[in-house]
């Protein structure tokens, strides 16, 4: 016991030396941001949102952008509700708490569930990506087109099982639109994220599914991609038709937009600075290269554009989800 306490002297000296050494580097700036900024991601590490958030923020520490690094904080749970609720309830309003949003997920949840957030509780900063939903079936599926699938579903109501990344996420919205537009009874099976949803389709455990275009594109060897839920065809998959082209009223409401926002209540100067920096940062050559390499579709949008998009989405989703009461 005694010996141990005396050895500590040496350890203390060393530790204090290290502390001083590391503590002095990293000078302070006068204006925002003076220290690293936290970005709350409402999904677990390794998911598409988390991993893209890490790529698009990796250049933040450069002087021409924030001059400070952005640290990703994962707060997963309840399809994103835990993380977003936390931002509104406990996030600081000094500009050091940011959040990564997913549209239509958070808007749909704010309509269906009793959440602490809605589009007025967040201040958009910029959008970095847009990933449309696609209709996929297993490689050996008898369905070779949306028409095949619909013909089968009409004869066997409810027997077409379709997976998606969860409840009231983009895939679910696409499913609801598809079912409404065609008037066919289908069965939706929510999974815990896009990857297991994709897996169920690849393995033929379900008959079809909605999934991210980017993930379906990477797995295109093991799938048949039947249609895109967007207004125009996508550069990754120029041969895949949109639902609109087939005369099915499914628009771009389910497109998964990803971007960053502040909780409402942050000073205007801070929002202005961030709204100026982030779009430029997302367009950094190095960032774009990494995004391209990883097959993540980029769509950079300014604060004003995001604001308009949120409003439009909320209006539409309120109509689509009207029957579903708040719980």
């Amino acid at each position: 016991m005694k010996r141990n306490e005396s050895v500590l002297g040496v350890v203390v000296t060393l530790a204090v030396a290290m502390l001083v050494l590391f503590g002095t580097c990293g000078g302070a700036l006068a204006e925002y941001p003076e220290s690293p900024v936290s970005l709350v991601v409402a999904y677990s590490p390794g998911g598409a949102t988390d991993f893209q958030a890490r790529i698009v923020t990796m250049m933040a520490a450069k002087e021409e952008y924030l001059g400070q690094p952005i640290v990703i904080i994962n707060k997963p749970g309840a399809g994103g509700q835990v993380g977003w609720n936390w931002c509104v309830q406990k996030g600081t309003r000094d500009g050091y708490t940011m959040l990564a949003y997913n549209v239509p997920h958070f808007i749909a949840q704010s309509i269906v569930f009793r959440t602490k957030y809605n589009i007025r509780k967040f201040e958009p900063v910029a959008n970095w990506g847009a990933d449309p939903a696609v209709l996929i079936v297993p490689k050996d599926s008898p369905f070779n087109s949306v028409a095949d699938l619909l013909a089968y579903a009409r004869k066997n109501p409810g027997k077409v099982t379709m997976t998606g990344a969860g409840l009231y996420v983009g895939h679910h919205i696409a499913f609801l639109q598809f079912a409404k537009a065609t008037g066919v009874k289908l069965t939706y099976i929510p999974e815990k994220g896009g990857v297991p949803a994709m897996q169920s389709v690849v393995a033929g455990k379900v008959k079809a599914g909605f999934n991210n275009l980017s993930d379906a594109y990477r797995n295109r060897e093991r799938l048949k991609i039947l249609a895109v839920a967007d207004l125009q065809r996508h550069a990754f998959l120029p041969d895949v038709k949109t639902f609109k082209e087939m005369g099915i009223a499914v628009d771009d409401s389910s497109v998964n937009f990803r971007g960053v926002a502040f909780p409402a209540g942050v000073p205007q100067e801070v929002i202005a600075k961030a709204a100026d920096v982030f779009p430029r940062m997302f367009k950094d050559k190095k960032t774009l290269k990494k995004m391209k390499a990883s097959g993540s579709p980029v769509r950079v949008m300014s604060r004003e554009q995001v604001k308009a998009m949120w409003q439009e989405r909320e209006q539409y989703l309120k109509g689509l989800l009207k029957g579903l009461r708040k719980r």
């Binding site: 306490e5 500590l8 002297g9 350890v11 203390v12 530790a15 204090v16 290290m18 502390l19 590391f22």
Partner: peptide, 13 residues
């Protein structure tokens, strides 16, 4: 006290 300081310093670094 020294042990506490050393322990926290190591954690911090």
């Amino acid at each position: 006290v020294a042990a506490g300081a050393a322990f926290t310093a190591v954690l911090y670094v």
